[in-house]
């Protein structure tokens, strides 16, 4: 029982970093109709800057995290302004291809910056375990869950309650109406990228503080955001959260128990699980658990 709970918490920890990435995807998708394939590269760079600010600049860890989030928000908004804004009015598919191009460019940049080293982001949590209702859990897993959920909640409240958040939602629903009401739609596009970049940086930091550190190849971990947004529905923030947690837990359960109960699937089956779930969802409910079935507009 205790082992099971530890496994679940580890799954929720990983899952909440997926959720962070997925929420970033969803915010950009809702505001601009573009699927942003550059997100994983933003995540890696976010981890890189956190590490830079901690070790080379000497900032205290929390300050470094916030500075890295701001840095990535700026880089991300600039990317939108330079590479994506000219694509406004072009088919979303073409814009998605551009984001793929951006991914390649940023990824190469990350490779240059990081080299073949493994960067460590700092180790504020270490391998400490703490007692949670009598169960020993890794502090890092709790940190992942708590920090991710707080960040997502802040974004949610901003979208729900603030004037600018409302303008972003209006832009997502009908750009022409938003314009006609005086919303600067271009600025909303930039803002959606900025938020998304900051969330990517945060998830990069959380993944980076894990034992492995960050290499550019960790970008492929971020690809798991894809099954997450498919499961959650491309246009639902809530969906991304649930889906991120579900996928994280599914992965972690598989890793812990598949060799005992389903030895025939072989080891490392957990890597495949998110994608298996994705394919299943695409077959049964292509718009995801929480997504809107093909928004109709006449």
């Amino acid at each position: 029982m205790e082992a099971l709970i530890a496994v679940l918490i580890r799954g929720l920890g990983v899952g909440s970093t997926y959720a962070l990435l997925a929420v970033g995807f969803v915010i950009i998708y809702r505001a601009t109709d573009v699927v942003n394939f550059a997100q994983p590269a933003l995540m890696i760079l976010g981890a890189y800057y956190t590490s830079l600010y901690v070790f080379n600049v000497g900032m205290p860890f929390p300050v470094a995290v916030i500075a890295a989030m701001i840095t990535m928000a700026v880089i991300s908004a600039l990317t939108e302004r330079i590479a994506l804004r000219p694509m406004v009015g072009e088919p979303p598919f073409a814009a998605a291809m551009v984001t793929f191009g951006v991914f390649v460019v940023l990824f190469i940049l990350a490779f240059r910056l990081i080299g073949t080293n493994v960067i460590v982001v700092g180790d504020p949590w270490g391998l400490e375990r703490i007692d949670l209702f009598g169960i020993r859990v890794n502090q890092i897993d709790l940190a992942k869950i708590v920090i991710s959920m707080i960040a997502i909640a802040v974004v949610g409240v901003f979208l729900k309650r603030s004037r600018v958040g409302l303008a972003m939602r209006a832009t997502a629903l009908d750009q022409e109406v938003a314009l006609a009401q005086g919303v600067n739609v271009g600025r909303m596009f930039g803002l959606s990228w900025a938020i998304s970049g900051a969330l990517a940086a945060l998830s990069g930091m959380l993944i980076g503080t894990a034992a492995g550190g960050v290499t550019p190849l960790v970008a492929f971990v971020a690809l798991k955001a894809l099954p997450v947004i498919i499961l959650g529905g491309l246009d639902s923030i809530q969906g991304s959260v649930y889906a991120g947690l579900i996928i994280g837990v599914a992965e972690s359960l598989t890793r812990a128990y598949s060799s005992t109960y389903f030895p025939w699937v072989g080891s490392n089956f957990d890597i495949v699980v998110p994608y298996a779930i994705m394919i299943l969802v695409l077959m049964i409910r292509p718009y995801g658990l929480f997504g809107t079935p093909e928004v109709q507009r006449v």
Partner: peptide
Amino acid sequence: RRILTELSVEENLRVGAHT
């Protein structure tokens, strides 16, 4: 009309007050 169908009545009005 082009109202924002998924938002509430008051939210629609508040969008109008953006400027």
